[in-house]
């Protein structure tokens, strides 16, 4: 057993876009569906983030399936050029839990160019928020264009930041071509089911 034997979901996107919020929504559902799940956090307060996950998933996941992995101030390197330390953490998960089904890797917040190495993530979600500006999809960052699923989060904030969801939808459709994108509000959970449908279909039943 090693990292090659489990499904791996990468979650990338800028700081504060809602990656952690999405992980918190995804994990209970996946556990409920009967999967054994591991979670890795790459953010700056790495161990603290991992502790927060451990607390909030206390009833769902064993402590040793939550890990913080430091990426030496290079979050993009950790998920793209050299994912070896994340892979080492996944190897440790599989050693301790040979029935592990899926690992979620949350990248540290990064720029719009940060994509996941395909050997680290079988499926790559890129989370942006409407509050970062309605022009984000239009900039065609590799994260936005190459992710398997683009998640546009914080739809509830659109009226407060003068972001037009129709503009975002039109631009996202244009830059994504046939690839999917989903609008979410991780605060009340709307749109999250749709994300889970994609994950189920593309990763877990694949």
């Amino acid at each position: 057993m090693g990292y090659r034997d489990v499904a791996k979901i990468g979650i990338g996107g800028p700081v504060g876009s809602g990656k952690t919020a999405l992980v918190r929504r995804l994990v209970p559902t996946l556990v409920d569906e009967g999967y054994e799940v591991g979670v890795i956090a790459n953010d700056i307060m790495t161990q603290e983030d991992a502790d927060v996950f451990r607390d909030s998933f206390a009833d769902l996941l064993p402590e040793d399936l939550v890990e913080g992995v430091e990426t030496g101030a290079c979050p993009h390197t950790g998920i793209r050029e050299d994912p070896s330390m994340n892979l080492a953490a996944i190897d440790e998960f599989t050693e301790r839990h040979p029935n592990l089904d899926v690992v979620i890797v949350e990248s540290g917040g990064d720029n719009l160019a940060a994509t996941f190495n395909p050997e680290l993530a079988d499926y790559f979600l890129f989370v942006i928020s409407v509050a970062e500006g309605e022009d984000i999809p239009r900039k065609r960052g590799p994260g936005v264009t190459q992710a398997d699923l683009l998640v546009v989060n914080k739809t509830d904030l659109a009226p407060h930041v003068d972001a037009d969801l129709d503009v975002i939808e039109r631009d996202a459709a244009e830059v994504r071509g046939d690839d999917p994108f989903v609008f979410t509000n991780c605060k009340d959970g709307s749109g999250v089911d749709e994300v889970i449908d994609h994950v189920d279909r593309e990763v877990l039943f694949a």
């Binding site: 992995v69 430091e70 990426t71 030496g72 290079c74 390197t77 950790g78 050029e81 050299d82 994912p83 070896s84 330390m85 080492a88």
Partner: peptide
């Protein structure tokens, strides 16, 4: 440093 063995995570 291009060698992908996680050297950039060690200080």
């Amino acid at each position: 440093s291009f060698l992908p063995v996680g050297g950039y995570t060690a200080s």
